[in-house]
């Protein structure tokens, strides 16, 4: 049971081919050097030329990005931009066709178990083991991480209180509302005190009070040196919450940097629409006013 395992390095025939990644030919900004004022150090997440194709559709087309340690990083993009695919490849859930990802210098695809120890992941659009109660699910996540029972129990109690789920801790997750499900999944991602949190759409369906609670948890986490990456398409939220932002559309990186750099004086939403395009200015739906 505890027999030494061979290094879980990839089998040669299954390793992604490391060919030079296709370069995005119209990226507005190249990947910025580390933000001035942050001491030069290993980025919390560093991805290089990540690309993924699903059948005939190129979902992610060579994205490179450095997320500085200690930053609150927002990734924004329209629906189907490739945010979830990129984050899945960066966190070891989806094997990239090309490119690499490293968490605090640990290659996610060469040393997955070490990299995953550093990360807390909230994937979007996956099921949970929802026949467990909320309390059991967080405990399960902690025990899977190899934590001892006492630590898990203390942290589960803290997390349930922080997420305002104490009253429903014994309810099966399958009976939770969408927002409660999101919160319990977030709690399972936090239990092992990771150095990097990757949260895909963490505020979807979460009520404003809980969202504020979660934000203050994340803020103090960042203040104490942790790194948070959130994906979202709510620009307002990202502008208020994050210090860095990357704009992704059609599987490419359009802009990246501090929020102030990217929005360049305008609001993030206007800048986003400008970058991504596709705003329709037609005088349509005249009849909608004819009721």
């Amino acid at each position: 049971m505890t027999a030494p395992q061979p290094d879980p390095a990839l089998q040669p025939d299954q390793a992604p081919q490391r060919e030079p990644a296709p370069q995005p030919d119209h990226a507005l900004h190249s990947v910025p050097a580390l933000h001035p004022g942050v001491a030069p150090q290993v980025p919390a997440l560093s991805i290089r030329g990540l690309a993924k194709r699903f059948g005939g559709k190129i979902a992610v087309d060579g994205i490179s990005l450095d997320v500085p340690a200690g930053s609150f990083y927002g990734i924004v993009g329209p629906n189907g931009a490739g945010k979830t695919t990129t984050l899945s490849m960066a966190t070891g859930l989806l094997r990239p066709d090309f490119g690499t990802a490293a968490v605090h210098g640990v290659d996610v695809w060469q040393r997955p178990l070490d990299a995953k120890r550093l990360m807390g992941i909230l994937p979007d659009g996956v099921r949970l083991f929802d026949r467990l109660t909320g309390e059991q699910l967080i405990t399960y996540a902690g025990l899977l991480r190899g934590m001892d029972r006492e630590t898990v129990a203390t942290r589960v109690a803290d997390l349930l209180a922080a997420m305002d789920l104490q009253e429903d801790a014994g309810t099966l997750v399958v009976d939770y509302s969408a927002g409660m499900t999101k919160k319990i999944a977030l709690a399972s991602a936090l239990i092992h005190a990771p150095r990097l949190l990757v949260l895909d759409e963490p505020f979807e369906a979460v009520d404003p009070v809980s969202a504020a609670n979660i934000r203050s948890i994340l803020d103090s986490y960042v203040a104490s040196g942790g790194t948070v990456i959130v994906s979202s398409h709510v620009m307002d939220l990202v502008q208020r919450m994050c210090d860095h932002v990357a704009v992704v559309a059609n599987g490419r990186l359009l802009a990246a940097g501090t929020v102030d750099e990217v929005r360049a004086g305008a609001s993030l939403e206007d800048r986003f629409v400008q970058l991504v395009g596709g705003r329709s200015h037609t005088e349509g739906l005249e009849w909608l006013r004819t009721f």
């Binding site: 467990l132 104490q166 099966l172």
Partner: peptide, 28 residues
Amino acid sequence: AGSGRRKGGRLGLLGVLPATPAGAVMAR
């Protein structure tokens, strides 16, 4: 389709079987 709210405190088999990854998988 809602059901009553229930407080926690009952870990079931997760609290009984060994607190190792394999034990947790077995309990789940």
